[in-house]
Amino acid sequence: MTSAAGSWERFGTGALSRTAALVHNLLVVELLLRVTTLPGLVATALDRDVSNLPLVALCALPAGPALSAALYALHHRGSDLTDLRPAAAFLRGYRMNAGGALLVWGFWLGWITVLAVNLANLGASGLPGWWVVPMTLVGAGTTLWMLNALVITSLFAFRARDVARLAAYLLFRAPGVSLGNACLVVVVLGGVLAGSEAVVALAGSLLALALLSNSRRLIAVVRKEFTR
């Protein structure tokens, strides 16, 4: 009897169980990501033309709250096979953080769309070619800020302006996070250019897990220095 009880207590704590729990969480989160980003499928069918960028940005709007919910669900995941509820965590994160995530994501999408349109029409605008460098740097910096802000608004309860300030501050306070996220952005861009947006979308839960892993230092700093 004691042996059986001990076996039950150890159930769900071994390496194989933890791996199985992680795979289960990733699969469920991936399915929910697909369901909550269905409008984005329209964007994958569009030609890669500058004129389609505003429509692509509009179709991509639901991806922000969905990614935020995925971050929340994966952050609060359990490794015990007897208590796996990633769907409940995803939906709870979606309800709690959809508004804040949409603000962050929508601002970034709008800004990146403007930059991309200007870069594509640089010759027609009469601007010198060297403007590509500062505009690209601004786009990269805004993207890294957005990733910080999305993680913060997904896992903590701050006002929108405080999220924006913290995200900017942590670009320099946690440079390792910024570097890791920059590498993640390069991987995503490489996937889009080599394949398609759909290929990247199919790895949404893995990308969310990678972003969460990159942001461990950021999360620790926010929890220690800015929460009670």
Rank of each mutant, 00 (worst) to 15 (best):
L155Q: 09
L212F: 08
S3K: 05
V28W: 06
A116M: 08
G129Q: 13
L46M: 14
L127R: 15
L102N: 08
P65I: 03
L16F: 14
C59T: 11
A168G: 08
A60Q: 12
L171D: 00
L61E: 09
H75W: 03
Y72M: 04
G139P: 06
M135E: 10
A167D: 01
R161V: 04
G190R: 04
L33V: 02
G141F: 00
S154V: 01
E225A: 11
G191A: 08
A98S: 13
A203P: 08
G106D: 02
W105S: 12
V177T: 10
R228L: 14
P175M: 08
R165L: 11
A198S: 10
L127Y: 09
A66S: 10
L74V: 05
R85Q: 03
D47C: 01
L184H: 11
A69P: 06
G78Y: 01
L103K: 15
V104F: 01
R85S: 05
V186F: 13
P54A: 03
L147V: 06
V188Q: 06
T13L: 14
L31V: 09
M146V: 06
R18Q: 10
I219T: 07
P128S: 12
T142K: 00
R161H: 13
H76K: 06
R161I: 10
A220F: 12
A88W: 00
W111K: 11
H75E: 11
S17H: 14
L115M: 12
L207T: 06
R34D: 07
R10H: 09
S213F: 15
F107L: 12
V50A: 15
L184Y: 12
L155E: 04
M135Y: 08
G180W: 13
S17E: 15
A140I: 13
G180I: 00
A201K: 07
W111N: 09
A208S: 07
S178E: 00
M96G: 02
V151S: 08
